[in-house]
Design a protein around this nucleic acid. Structure first.
Lengths: 137, 137
DNA sequence: GCACATGATAGGCGCATGCTTACGATTGAG
DNA sequence: CTCAATCGTAAGCATGCGCCTATCATGTGC
């Protein structure tokens, strides 16, 4: 592993490559990257505050608002004031939102599988294991 | 490998993490990310045109100009008109530039080694092999 | 009850980016 | 010789982002 680029350079190039692969998929479903991140986060579990959601996906909480507006208008998320604390908005996916996320994610996963298909399984597993470990908070 | 995030999400988070690690190093040496990319590219081999350099590091050729101005002013790169075609500027590192790149890169590599130190060698090697393959043009 | 903290929202500022256009110098093809 | 193409440079534009402030509604500790 002597002659290689810096990790940063390689990771950023890979990021760009993944972006190029994913963008058309997101465009086709009329969803921005941030919106997809929101759907993904809410699929794991509902959120009690928008601030927590923003922190969870590494977004600015003020920039998230138009994204949530749009998702709500399209009926993809629920966003209701918490009866027990009317400052906060409870966030959750609707059935439509869940369905759309599932559709998009499966397309993205197909693209990923395609990228990874050339590697020997041990490299691929090592790659994924290391990547998962490196991105654990 | 059933329950994992999308590759894109993980790769971008890792990119941010690497950025957080590298930025202080670059700042300490008064070098921007683009400038460091230029030094890295020129270390591999001199370049015959700025356009080729820009394409090589994935930058906009017009945005590269102030970066090159700065690097030249600091005596880190040479940038002379090609006698055989005076439209183009031959680009190369100076001794100082080579030295500075070497210093910065070794600090960055130390940070990378630290990040990767926890993994079993097989995972680490698979990770690097896959990453190298995925970023080959 | 009152001061203070928290959540959502709106707006603005500064920065880096990608993209585009224009221009002067130079080269090469016809 | 003339014209098109290439290279470097300057400038402008729209976008998206992070950050910061202010405002309003609400909740909590004293």
């Amino acid at each position: 592993m002597e002659e290689r680029e810096d990790l940063g350079a390689m990771v950023f190039r890979l990021g760009r490559r993944l972006l190029v692969m994913e963008q058309p998929i997101l465009d086709r479903h009329g969803v921005s990257m941030w919106a997809y991140a929101v759907l993904t986060a809410l699929r794991e579990s509902p959120m009690r505050t928008q601030t927590a959601l923003a922190a969870g996906i590494g977004a600015d909480k003020t920039r998230l608002i138009p994204v949530l507006d749009e998702l709500q208008k399209r009926g993809l998320i629920e966003r209701e004031p918490d009866p027990s604390d009317r400052r906060v908005r409870l966030l959750d996916l609707t059935a439509d939102g869940r369905r759309l996320h599932e559709t998009i994610q499966s397309e993205i996963r197909a693209g990923e599988a395609d990228l990874l298909s050339d590697f020997p399984p041990t490299d691929r597993d090592g790659f994924l294991r290391a990547l998962i470990a490196l991105t654990r908070r």
